[in-house]
Design a protein around this nucleic acid. Structure first.
Length: 127
RNA sequence: CCAGGGGGCCGGGCAGCCGCUCCUUCGACAGGCUCAGGAUGAGCGGGUUGUUGGAGAGGAAAGUCCGGGCUCCACGAAACAAGGGUGGCGGGUAACGCCCGCCCGGCGCAAGUCGAGGGAAAGUGCCACAGAGAGCAUACCGCCGAUGGCUCCUUCGGGAGAACAGGCAAGGGUGAAAGGGUGCGGUAAGAGCGCACCGGGGCUUCGGCAACGCGGUCCGCAUGGCAAACCCCACCCGGAGCAAGGCCGAAUAGGGGCGGCGCGCCAGCUUGCUGGCAGAUACGUUUCGUAUCGACCGCCCGGGUUGGCUGCUUGAGUCAUGGAGCGAUCCAUGGCCUAGAUGAAUGGCUGCCGCCGCAGAUACGGUCCGCUCGUCGGAUACCGUCUGUGGAGACAGAACCCGGCUUACAGGCCCCCUGGCAUC
C-alpha cells in the first residue's frame, strides 16, 4: 500500500462519509468527506445485495487496486474516500472503471457532487 | 460394443508486468527501555523503509445438523425426577446420530440398493373419505333355504315352487387395511369344519459371541395398522462459547480502602504561592524544642471506553515402508512442517497452451477396395494432423482446531463388477 494511504476501520466513519460528497457512476458510488487532517483514507462497502462472498471479495479486491493507483495521484488530501459497489461492478471492464474513478475524483475535487439520497428514515438501533 | 452398478481421484497449466500478508538474511533511519558512566559504550525490544530467501484457500473452506479437544462458569459424590437424544447384532473410534462387517425384510435377472429395523395380549388414543361393516367387527348386492312355517300337486310314500323365519360369509362391491393364502374334500349353502402345501404362534435339539438360522415337535391358529400419537423399556447427555479466556501500558472521567484528620487567622503580592501565628501527630522525663502535615495529597485495589499482545496454529497431523485384520481401523519405524488474515492478506491486468463447436487445407498415418501380396496400386475429407474463427470455463473464500453428516458442482480421468450381443 502507498504510505500516504490508510484504511477506514470504524463503522461511524463509514456512516459519516454518507453525509459528504457523493458521485455516482455505473459501477460504483464514490463518497468523499474531509476527516480533520488524518490523511487520505479509503474504505470499501459491498452489500450482500451484490452477491455471495466470492463475488463481494472479488469486487473489493478490484476496487482496492483502483484506489491504490488513483488516490496517491488524484485523491483529495485529508479526506475519507468510500467506494460503494453497485450491481454490474464485477463484470465491468477494469480500464473503464479506472477512467470513471478518475473522472469521479476530479468532480469531487471541484466540490460538485450528485444530489444525495435525501433524509433517510432513522432506524433506531438496539445496543 | 451396448446397457447398468459400485468405488477412488482431479477440479485448469505456464509465463510477463504491478502488488498484498506472514516468516527469514543483511542493512539504513529516528525514537524507547535497562546497565555502566567523564565522553564514549554494552544489551534488549518493537516502528518505518530497503534487501536475501521462502510460504500463502476448499473438496466441499458452505449449511452450522451431530460428536469431541480447548477455555471459563456452576456443582460434595451418587441416584432420582424433568427435558432432549439414540434404537437389529457385533466391532472400530477420543467420541458420535459417523464408519465397517453381519442378520432380517422390501426392490432388481444380476452386480447391487433401500429400511428411525426395540415394545401394539401394560394402558390410553386415532384409523379421514368411501363402505353394510374399521376393533367385544359387519351383512348392501349375493348364496342357501337342509330345519320350521306357506302355496300347489299327489299313487298319501312323497314331490315341486316361492323365499317368511332362519343359516352362510364363498363371490361382487368399498377401502391403505375387511379377522391367514392356494387347492381338494365337505355341505342346503358355507366356514380350519377336515386334509395337503405355504404362512403364523408356543416349546425345543444343534450351529453362531450375538442379531439370527437349520431342523424337530405341539397348536387349526380371531385378536390388523399407526409408537416420525401419548406411552413403556434399554442406553447416553451440566451450561456457555475464541466476541471462550489470559495479559499490558497511556490519557481522561472517576468508585472503594488505608494513612495524613489539623480543614483556621493575618500580611505580602507574582493570584496561588511565600512568610508568620494558632493546630494535629511522633520523639525527647516538662508550659518547651525538633520533624512531618495541612481539604486535598500519597499509596493500594477495582470498574468502564479505546488500542495492543496472547490464545493462534505441531495436530485424535500428514506421507512412505512393513505388519495385524474380511473391513472400518490399529501397531511399529523413518521422513516432513503444510495459511494465520482481523473493514479481514492469499490478488489485479495481459499473453500462450489445453477443452468444445464451425469453416478450410492435406492422401502423411488410421479407414475402405483391388490384386501381381509388395517399402504395391487406387478410393475417400469419416478420425487423426495443420490453419483460421467463434465459444465455454461450475459450485464456491479459511476466521480457535479436529472427526463426521448433509447440500451445491462446468468438465475430465482411473479401477472393479453385472447382464446382453458378436468373435475365438
Amino acid at each position: 500500500m502507498h504510505p500516504s494511504l490508510s484504511v477506514i476501520r470504524k463503522r461511524s466513519d463509514f456512516l459519516a462519509a454518507n453525509r459528504g460528497l457523493r458521485v455516482a457512476r455505473p459501477g460504483f458510488v464514490l463518497l468523499a468527506r474531509p476527516n480533520n487532517g488524518q490523511g487520505k483514507r479509503y474504505g470499501i462497502t459491498v452489500t450482500k445485495k451484490i452477491g455471495n462472498a466470492v463475488v463481494r471479495n472479488r469486487m473489493k479486491r478490484r476496487f482496492r487496486e483502483l484506489l491504490w493507483v488513483a488516490l496517491p495521484e488524484s485523491g483529495l488530501p485529508d479526506h475519507d474516500h468510500v467506494l460503494i459497489g453497485r450491481e454490474g461492478g464485477v463484470e465491468r471492464d477494469f480500464a473503464q472503471l479506472r477512467e470513471e474513478l478518475g473522472a469521479a475524483l476530479t468532480r469531487a475535487a471541484e466540490g460538485k457532487g450528485d444530489p444525495g439520497r435525501g433524509p433517510r428514515k432513522r432506524r433506531s438501533r438496539r445496543s
